[in-house]
C-alpha cells in the first residue's frame, strides 16, 4: 500500500494525572493506517488499547487531568490533513462520527435507552449531513437493513432494550457507518457476544469494509479474531507497542516473547492432542502502570529475560518482514524454536 496513509500516528502518549502521581497509559505509540486496511490492536487488559483509541477520538478528559503527546495526522475526504490531537474541539466534533467513527464493547451503555434507535441514527445523519428528518430516518432504515437487521424499517421505532446484544451491536455499527467514515475504530465490538453472533458481526464488518474501503482499527484480546480479520497486528504491553507487523508473520512467527506467550496461552481444538500438554501460560500479571519496571516492562514475566533486560528499556527495532519488535533478544529467539 504505497498510497498516503489515512491516519499517521506518531509518538502518541497519554498520561493521566491521578491521586498517586502521573499514570502513563500509552507511551510512544506510532503507526500508520491506509485505506481499506484492518489493524488489530491486541494486548492484555490495561495495556492501553482503549485509551489510545479514545485519545485519537479526543474522548479522553481534557488537560490537566490528561496530558496528550505526539501527533495523529488524519487525511480527510476533501484531501485536507489535520492533527487530531491539536484540532479545535469544534472541528474535531465535525470529524467525529462523520469521517472517524467508533464502536464500543458494551452496546447497551453506548445507546441511549430512552430514545428509539431510528431517532438515534437519524440524529447523527442530521448533525453531520444536514439532511431532513424524514430523509435521515429513511437512511437509518437502509443502514439497519445493510447491517442485517431483519424487518429493518419497522425496527426503527424500537428501543435499545427491545433488541438482543447482537442486534444492538449491529445498531451501533449502523450508527458508526451512518456517514460512511473513512476510519472506524472498533473497541472490542464482539467481546460481549456469543461466538455465533460474533461470527456474524465479523462477517458484516468485512463486507462493509469491502464495500466502502474504510480503514478499521480493531481492538480485541481474542487472537482468533485477529487471525480472522486483521491485515496488520499491533501488540501492546504496558502502554508500549512491543511488536507490530503484517498479521501472518506475527501470528505464525512471533518474535517478542510476550506475543509468543499470548499465542501459546490459547488452547487449540485438535482431537489428536487434546488436553495432553498443559498450556504455556504467561506467569504473573501486568505491571502496575504507576510502578513500571525500569527496563523491559515484560522482564518480570519473561522466560527469556537476562540481567540486561531489567537494566534499560529495549528499543522498538525493525526485525525483517516489515515488522517492529521491542526485545533485545529477538535475534537469538528467532533462531530458537517458537
Amino acid at each position: 500500500m504505497a498510497q498516503e496513509p489515512l491516519l499517521e500516528v506518531s509518538h502518541l502518549s497519554v498520561t493521566f494525572a491521578t491521586e498517586n502521581g502521573p499514570l502513563p497509559a500509552v507511551r510512544d505509540v506510532s503507526f500508520r493506517l491506509s485505506a481499506g486496511e484492518t489493524l488489530a490492536l491486541v494486548g492484555e487488559s490495561g495495556s492501553g488499547k482503549s485509551v489510545a483509541s479514545l485519545a485519537l477520538m479526543r474522548l479522553v478528559p481534557p488537560a490537566p487531568r490528561v496530558s496528550l503527546g505526539g501527533s495523529a495526522h488524519f487525511c480527510a475526504a476533501d484531501g485536507s490533513r489535520h492533527d487530531l490531537l491539536a484540532l479545535a474541539p469544534d472541528a474535531m466534533r465535525r470529524l467525529r462520527g462523520n469521517e472517524i467513527s467508533m464502536i464500543f464493547q458494551e452496546p447497551m451503555t453506548s445507546l441511549n435507552p430512552v430514545h428509539r434507535i431510528g431517532e438515534q441514527i437519524a440524529e447523527a445523519i442530521i448533525f453531520h449531513q444536514g439532511a431532513s428528518h424524514r430523509a435521515a430516518l429513511a437512511r437509518a432504515g437502509e443502514l439497519l437493513e445493510k447491517v442485517g437487521i431483519p424487518d429493518a424499517h419497522r425496527r426503527l421505532s424500537a428501543f435499545p432494550h427491545h433488541l438482543s446484544g447482537g442486534m444492538r451491536q449491529r445498531v451501533m455499527i449502523a450508527m458508526a457507518l451512518a456517514c460512511t467514515p473513512r476510519v472506524l475504530i472498533a473497541d472490542e465490538p464482539t467481546t460481549a457476544l456469543d461466538v455465533t453472533v460474533q461470527a456474524q458481526i465479523l462477517e458484516l464488518l468485512k463486507e462493509l469494509q469491502h464495500a466502502n474501503g474504510m480503514a478499521v482499527v480493531f481492538i480485541t484480546h481474542n487472537l482468533g479474531v485477529v487471525a480472522e480479520i486483521a491485515d496488520r497486528v499491533m501488540v501492546m504491553y504496558a502502554g508500549l507497542i512491543v511488536e507490530e507487523g503484517a498479521m501472518v508473520p506475527v501470528m505464525t512467527r512471533p518474535r517478542m516473547p510476550y506475543t509468543r506467550g499470548l499465542l501459546h496461552s490459547v488452547p487449540r481444538i485438535d482431537p489428536e492432542t487434546l488436553g495432553s500438554a498443559p498450556l504455556t501460560a504467561i506467569p504473573g500479571t501486568v505491571p502496575d502502570p504507576l510502578h513500571l519496571p525500569p527496563g523491559c516492562a515484560f522482564a518480570p514475566r519473561c522466560a527469556h529475560a537476562e540481567p540486561a533486560c531489567a537494566a534499560a528499556p529495549p528499543p522498538l527495532e525493525p526485525a525483517g518482514e516489515g515488522r517492529l519488535v521491542r526485545c533485545r533478544r529477538w535475534r537469538a529467539l528467532a533462531e530458537a524454536p517458537a
Binding site: 498517586n20 506467569p283 500479571t285 502496575d288 504507576l290 510502578h291
Partner: peptide, 15 residues
C-alpha cells in the same frame, strides 16, 4: 509456573 510467580505484586489500591 512456580508459586513465586503468581505472587506478582497485587495492584496497590488505597484501602
Amino acid at each position: 509456573m512456580s508459586a513465586a510467580e503468581a505472587l506478582a505484586p497485587a495492584p496497590p489500591a488505597a484501602r
